[in-house]
């Protein structure tokens, strides 16, 4: 950049250095401030309230742990934690495996490739609630699946059809997650695969590696970073998802986000602090899982000698 001569214009030079120094902070300021205030500000509000600082409800007992203590003692709370993990982890694992295979398949040559490439992305584009509606139509007690089984003579009444939705087993919840998330994970993995190209795999095959050997030792290690990012996003989403378990899950206990909303929505305002405690607990649990997962992945990469 232009360097001003010090004898001619010292003020101008100082202005130029100031501008150079301020450039990065000023450019970053809009995004950092917006997210900082909205995102971290609200987390801070929730944190303070969960420890008993809520002047709007006339509660100023900060700092107290009683909202957490009452939460942990609540009947059904730990069952709720279990359900949250269950609904989050199972679809993440099943979905990742299904997506890996789908991404690898999409790379091959076959007829109708353009059509499949188009169709599989559809769930990615529409809200989870549409998936919920589809699940009710398909797997509800009087849904299409039950009607088809009736027509085939497998069941005699709606009562014979297994409860797939509105139950704690959560088949419906997990179906919606998979329906929405397999396309998401596949898209990430597919574009990572496209970025890599096929050279190293072809080299492995030329050197005599079998299908599985190539997959385990060449393809998978290369796309591992993509797998890790996708699973992190998917897990974090499922862990905090509200509307799907709220509608398709069983009654009480439900997942932590649903219980948080119920506590917040209660006519008794003091329960709102418990809602904040639940929400903080969700954040801490989810971060702990993700940090452990990332650390394990880093360790694995180091052990393998890749940095």
């Amino acid at each position: 950049m232009a360097i001003a001569s010090p004898t001619r214009n010292r003020g101008h030079a100082r202005w130029a250095t100031w501008r150079r120094r301020a450039y990065v902070p000023v450019m970053l300021a809009p995004v950092v401030l917006t997210l900082g205030v909205l995102f971290f500000g609200s987390l801070l509000v929730a944190l303070l309230q969960s420890f008993g600082h809520a002047p709007i409800y006339g509660i100023t007992e900060f700092p107290t742990l009683k909202h957490y203590r009452s939460l942990f003692a609540l009947p059904g709370f730990w069952a709720s934690v279990g359900l949250t993990f269950y609904y989050a982890i199972v679809p993440t694992i099943v979905g990742t495996i299904a997506s890996l295979y789908l991404a690898l398949t999409l790379r091959r040559r076959f007829r109708g490739r353009r059509f499949v490439q188009f169709v599989y992305k559809l769930p990615l584009m529409i809200p989870y609630l549409v998936g919920v509606a589809l699940t009710i139509v398909l797997f509800g007690n009087g849904g299409i699946a039950a009607r088809t089984l009736f027509a085939l003579g497998v069941i005699d009444s709606t009562g014979d059809f297994p409860r797939l939705i509105y139950s704690h087993a959560g088949w419906g919840v997990m179906f919606v997650y998979l329906w929405k998330q397999i396309p998401f994970t596949t898209l990430i993995l597919y574009s990572v695969l496209m970025g890599l190209g096929k050279e190293s795999e072809e080299a492995a095959v030329t050197l005599g590696a079998g299908r599985w050997q190539t997959f385990w030792h060449v393809t998978l290690p290369q796309i591992m970073p993509g797998v890790v990012s996708a699973t992190i996003i998917v897990f974090a989403f499922n862990f905090g998802s509200f509307e799907v378990p709220f509608i398709l899950g069983g009654g009480f206990p439900n997942t932590l986000p649903v219980e948080a909303w119920r506590a917040f929505d209660d006519a008794d305002y003091s329960k709102r602090l418990r809602a904040m405690a639940i929400v903080m607990f969700i954040g801490v649990l989810s971060s702990a899982v993700l940090i452990t997962y990332l650390a394990a992945y880093r360790r694995f990469e180091r052990l393998r000698g890749r940095q």
């Binding site: 950092v32 995102f39 929730a46 974090a236 905090g240 969700i282």
Partner: peptide, 26 residues
């Protein structure tokens, strides 16, 4: 900064939602 900009993707929305709601009501 890059990590900071990623956090909304990995922190559950509900954790932010209730705090914002309380603030926005005020």
């Amino acid at each position: 900064v890059e990590f900071f900009l990623l956090t909304p993707l990995i922190v559950p929305e509900i954790a932010v939602g209730l705090g914002i709601l309380v603030t926005f009501i005020q």
